[in-house]
Design a protein around this nucleic acid. Structure first.
Length: 894
RNA sequence: GCCCGGGUGGCGAAAUGGUAGACGCGGGCGACUUAAAAUCGCCUGGCCUCAGGCCUUGCAGGUUCGAGUCCUGCCCCGGGCACCA
């Protein structure tokens, strides 16, 4: 940079030297206003152009606002949206709010502020933060799931489900969470606790709305094949659906002519090895078949099972427990009497809640049989292995199956069962119908009326939406009454068609309802006569790229696919699947510092003993003091409060060394970084660039505030490439209208080529690296040519849009760069005239040679053998073999 | 236990079976400065007998002219599922 040091000195005499050369704060606000006022990103559909629908999983606007981890996916989709626009696509890039749900309501209960109010405030904060990143959303399509104009159509879709018998009410055992005062879907229960809040959940029967997602199980499974989704996510969905093939077999109960036990097995070939039966403790037949002698023991076991949470059951490990019912079943083939047991290793919710136990070929049955001294029979021979064997082999001791390989034996047994009327081939799924009602306030009301005669009918379409009633008290009642039942005037109504007295439904829909179809509303958000028009749907759907967190693998993504398939069957959408390509962005991690104390109960009056991480050890799940073994609790120190003393990291006031822990950002750890602070200091473009530069999009990465310096320096360098801030009044450095030197033109072509490829593949980190190389090297030999300079600004535009707009304007353009045509690399420049080849000897790099790009193998070979260091290694010997890899290297084998 | 990812400099990371460590952080040296910051330039995996050479992508083998990349076995970390019949 030999440019005018003299000018700089001259300037310093007259003016302050502290003027910032590149001031993102003023640039960014100006361009954000520009985009807003011009509606630059309003999506319009021109049928002559290809379309690109790029979508973020819309956020739940929580009270805490965004931290730097949230926008990573939004930035990535924004880069792609901007890139695709410049590539000539019509881009649909919308944003909205998934605003119904528990946290707003929990907050309302704590503070007394209406959820509508907190939701409004939270949305305002989220929107301000998102806008400050310069994301190119079409805000005219903003959606809020709590808006009656939106949930009207959520209710409308529910009505269509009801009409097709895909929504029904049933008395089912549900996951009741007393602390939240609601039931939860299976997907919302993790380890026997609620996904939100970690409260205990108990199973109990209740009348609930259900959606028949099981009717779509096969299609949800099959159509995964055609999706460009991460393999682990597809796998999780397959596992969740849990399809397995096998047979249903009916075992008559001895001495109860009217009773049969129905079981499901994937191994009908082992039927001859069944030596006893097991029912889940909750199985409906238990009380009917239990003999008087066993009744006391059985009921005690059933109660004990109910009391123990699933967590406690798991903590017990694999120890088998159970009680005999005293009853017997009749083996459908041999007629043998098999004792019927109950045991909690058979779960009520899977299959039929009953099994035939084949201890010879099932590890669980084997353990149980050993524990209770039940007979074990060998019916499948697997290459001399000892029992229990669970793999395929050859049937033995199995009557008409003897000698058959397992697969054939299965077919033969199913045929026999069907011929004898004792069973049939069957496929089961682990997936169960979706429990769709919640006993909460902040959700969509069900658009139905319960008439006095018990019938349920739909609210007429013209009366939609059924609005949420106003309530002052949102609390769950503690019993099973719901908040809506307090709105008595709202609950008691009349059927507008018959004039009969009617009650509204007391439940609301779960949080997932609104997100099942929001991507469809985005294509036609202001339509008041239908949820979306056919025309809009066909011009934008499906979503071409969907980016969001992996935590939605089996919740939102499965539910949304289910609704979409249903809408497809109705002819309302034209694609079987809503999301063609899915990418999970990796989390951004924060760092905090840890120590321990013995105030395990968080007693504020305690004077705890404080320990460094060096003085503790892990004992199973707990952390204890290394010396006296007392139990400890982890404490956290935010990174800005630690003291660095002689290379050690210490507590702010105490003399103990802290341990750095890098994990998901959360309030409780004090490791959250607010994007507002980063943007105020470095600007949105630096923030965007940094998050994209950290590493591959789908990988998690730790946030470090030093790291952002690098990309900020890069943007400053870019600024100076175009703007001479030492010459006030000069809008831009004059760029040469001539072609630059060959090296510059070639670098430009390579950068265009490389950045384009990287953006297509979502490799933002390497795209940025290539831009950095250009900015570093382009002006080494000569000033930048206009041609290369403008191409570079365009390449930068998707990643750092504010700076690119500013430079584009300084280069004399009056239109936004947002729709400027993406540059194309001159292929002639990509092919260089000479090339540098590495020369290896026995696979080790020893020298390099320069040869013309079109040199033939012989020329390359002799050049390689003539290289100085090669001659030294050869020392007169003849190489055994010379391998020429065109364009790459030469390997001389001795 | 089972199923996925992943182990590369002090750190974040690059690398169609073909020059390992691009780019960035941090660090070092120098220029500019009264000074500092900012900026700019150079250096920065380890070791040695240093114009050269040896070692190096979790560990141990294998395939290949050539392996971070492919194969076999193992170790460690992260995630998902978990008595699923």
């Amino acid at each position: 940079m030999q440019r005018s040091l003299d000018a700089r000195q001259g300037e310093c005499g007259a003016l302050s030297c502290s003027a910032m050369p590149y001031e993102p704060q003023s640039i960014e606000a100006r361009w954000q206003d520009f985009w807003r006022q011009r509606e630059t990103f309003r999506a319009e559909r021109d049928p002559a152009k290809p379309k690109y629908y790029v979508l973020d999983m819309f956020p739940y606007p929580s009270g805490a606002g965004l931290h730097v981890g949230h926008p990573k996916g939004y930035i990535a989709t924004d880069v792609l949206a901007r890139y695709k626009r410049m590539r000539g696509y019509d881009v649909l890039h919308p944003m909205g709010w998934d605003a119904f749900g528990l946290p707003a309501e929990q907050y309302a209960i704590e503070t007394g502020v209406h959820p509508r109010e907190t939701t409004r405030r939270n949305i305002a904060t989220f929107k301000r933060q998102i806008e400050s990143l310069g994301l190119s959303y079409d805000w005219s399509r903003e959606i809020d799931t709590t808006d009656p104009g939106y949930y009207r159509w959520t209710q409308w879709i529910f009505q269509r489900l009801f009409e097709r018998d895909l929504a029904y009410q049933a008395e089912v055992p549900v996951n009741w969470c007393p602390a939240l005062g609601t039931v939860l879907a299976n997907e919302e229960v993790i380890d026997g606790k609620s996904e939100r809040g970690g409260h205990p959940v108990v199973r109990m029967p209740m009348k609930q709305w259900m959606l028949r997602i099981t009717a779509y199980a096969d299609r949800l499974l099959e159509d995964l094949e055609e999706l460009d989704w991460p393999e682990p996510i597809k796998k999780m969905q397959r596992d969740w659906i849990g399809r397995s093939e096998g047979a249903e077999v009916r075992f008559p109960v001895a001495d109860h002519e009217d009773l049969t036990i129905e079981i499901f097995t994937t191994r009908p070939d082992t039927l001859f090895g069944a030596t006893y039966m097991v029912l889940a403790p909750e199985h409906p037949l238990v009380s009917r078949i239990t003999t008087d002698e066993q009744r006391a023991a059985v009921s005690e076991y059933v109660q004990a099972t109910n009391r123990r949470s699933e967590r406690a059951r798991m903590a017990d490990g694999k120890r088998k427990t159970g009680v005999a019912t005293g009853a017997f079943a009749v083996h459908p083939v041999t007629g043998a009497r098999l004792p019927i047991w109950i045991a909690d290793y058979v779960v009520a919710g899977y299959g039929t809640g009953a099994i035939m136990a084949v201890p010879g070929h099932d590890e669980r049955d084997f353990e149980f049989a050993q524990t209770f001294d039940l007979p074990i029979v060998h019916v499948v021979d697997v290459a001399g292995q000892e029992l229990p064997t669970t793999g395929d082999g050859t049937s033995v001791n199995s009557g008409f199956l003897d000698g058959l390989p397992s697969a054939e034996a299965r077919r033969r047994m199913i045929a026999w069962l069907e011929a004898e009327g004792r069973g049939r081939g069957r496929v089961t799924t682990r997936l169960r119908d979706w429990l769709f009602s919640r006993q909460r306030y902040w959700g969509e009301p069900f658009p139905v009326l319960h008439l006095e005669d018990g019938t349920v009918k739909l609210v007429p379409e013209r009366d939609l939406p059924v609005r949420l009633p106003e309530l002052d008290d949102f609390r769950p009642s503690g019993d099973q009454r719901t908040p809506l039942e307090r709105a008595t005037a709202w609950m008691e109504t009349v059927d507008p068609e018959t004039g009969q007295k009617a009650r509204r439904d007391r439940n609301t829909m779960p949080q997932w309802a609104g997100s099942c179809w929001y991507f469809l509303r985005f294509v036609d958000p202001h339509n008041e006569t239908e949820p979306w028009s056919r025309e809009c749907e066909q011009s934008w759907m499906p979503v071409d790229l969907y980016v969001g967190g992996a935590e939605h693998a089996v919740l939102h993504l499965l539910y949304a696919r289910f609704w979409h398939k249903f809408l497809y069957d109705l002819g309302l959408v034209s694609t079987k699947e809503p999301f063609r390509k899915l990418v999970n962005q990796g989390m951004i991690l924060g760092s905090s510092w840890r120590y321990y104390d013995d105030n395990v109960t968080d007693d504020p009056a305690a004077r705890p003993r404080v320990l460094s991480f060096r003085d503790v050890r892990a004992e199973e799940e707990r952390i204890v003091a290394a010396d006296d073994g007392r139990e400890l609790k982890a404490r956290w120190v935010a990174p800005d409060r630690v003291r660095l003393v002689e290379g050690r990291t210490l507590h702010p006031t105490l003399d103990i060394e802290l341990e750095e822990v890098i994990e998901k950002m959360s309030k409780s750890r004090g490791n959250v970084v607010n994007p507002d602070t980063i943007i105020a200091q470095y600007g949105a473009d630096s923030m965007r660039l940094y998050e994209m530069f950290l590493g591959p999009l789908d990988k998690e990465a730790p946030w470090t505030t030093e790291g952002i310096h690098g990309v900020h320096r890069f943007l400053q360098r870019v600024w100076r490439l175009f703007v001479d801030d030492d010459l006030p009044g000069e809008p831009a450095r004059p760029l040469s209208e001539e072609h630059g030197p060959d090296t510059q033109e070639r670098l430009s072509a390579e950068t265009i080529h490389g950045v384009s490829e990287d953006l297509e593949a979502l490799r933002f980190n390497t795209a940025i690296a290539k831009l950095m190389v250009f900015a570093r090297d382009a002006t080494k030999e000569a000033p930048l040519s206009r041609r290369s300079g403008e191409a570079f600004v365009k390449l930068l535009a998707p990643l750092a849009p504010h700076l690119a707009e500013e430079l584009w304007q300084k280069l004399g353009h009056t239109e936004s760069i947002a729709y400027a045509a993406w540059p194309l690399a001159d292929p002639a420049l990509l092919a260089s005239t000479t090339m540098t080849l590495a020369v290896q000897i026995n696979g080790k790099r020893r020298d390099e040679i320069q040869v013309p790009a079109d040199a033939d193998d012989d020329t390359v070979r002799s050049a390689a053998l003539a290289a100085e260091n090669v001659r030294r290694h050869l020392a007169g010997r003849q190489p055994r073999k010379v391998i020429v890899v065109p364009g790459r290297l030469v390997n001389v084998v001795l």
